[in-house]
Write a protein that binds this DNA or RNA. Structure first.
Lengths: 150, 150
DNA sequence: GCTTAAAGGTTACGTTTGTAACTAACAACG
DNA sequence: CGTTGTTAGTTACAAACGTAACCTTTAAGC
């Protein structure tokens, strides 16, 4: 621990902490959409964005969720086959289509939202409301800042 | 937005925020180990843990990094082929081997540590030292709490 | 209008991943 | 000891992924 070598203690290297936290929380939640609805992680995320932000194009989902377009493309296809969403042609630009949840998709989203909210509350309980809120704010800030660099 | 339906606004659903932040930071850093050393993400993470926590078994890395054992197994094999690590038989239990960085592995780790530290500093700068510190602490807390449930 | 460039998506292909089944070494218990 | 169960790690196989090439539609330049 000489002072010349500024003791680069990276045991708390942020990308790893983020990955680990993301991975653990994700794994602890996935059975909810996987076992009951046979959905994959990306499918759940796409459905989530459609459910909470409303109908939108694949491109918009890519941007908002930081997901690769091929990943989204395949998830959309899968959700379509499961009758959770349908495509609506946008008149002014026929390259992209508006993705909309079906009745069934909306119902499933609603159910999963309930479970997700409960799940989210466990974080709030273990961290405390204040720290939880702070974490959310910090993450949003971080995401906004790093969004453009991709 | 009736009050009966408690407006489950999940636009800040924690698992997604974590994933997104993890994904963005990870993507912004990966070219450092990928282009220069041909390392994959998991390989970098394994090397990182060996470098910062010292020689250890695959199992220990799995636990500490929340990585699946097959993923670690393959990363170790790849790092071994690249002469970044070697295995040392532990006398009292021949099921597991101690994984150790080679000279070359240590050198590479040292170089990457410098870059990683710089990278980490960009977070500190954009968030501010205090918020950055708080974030790290919160994430560590979160990880500890959810570790057992896997 | 015609050519060229770019954007939204999809698909083909090779790589990476997870699940499950496996080997090998150890531990417990009779 | 010998059987049974468990743990560390590897491997086979199928599923999921990213890169790059592709189609289609729109926009830009002339």
């Amino acid at each position: 621990m000489t002072s010349a070598q500024p003791d680069t203690d990276l045991s708390d290297f942020l990308p790893f902490l983020l990955f680990q936290a993301a991975e653990l929380s994700s794994r602890n939640f996935q059975h909810h959409y996987q076992s009951r609805y046979g959905m994959l992680r990306t499918e759940w995320r796409v459905m989530f964005h459609l459910g909470s932000d409303g109908s939108q194009t694949a491109k918009q989902i890519c941007n908002r969720a930081s997901l690769h377009k091929t990943k989204v493309s395949r998830a959309v296809k899968a959700l379509e086959e499961k009758r959770f969403l349908f495509r609506e042609t946008v008149t002014h630009d026929r390259r992209s289509e508006l993705l909309c949840l079906t009745k069934q998709g909306q119902a499933t989203f609603a159910k999963l939202t309930v479970v997700a909210t409960e799940f989210d509350k466990t974080f709030e309980q273990s961290l405390g409301a204040k720290e939880h809120e702070k974490l959310v704010a910090t993450l949003q800030k971080l995401i906004t800042l790093h969004q453009g660099k991709g």
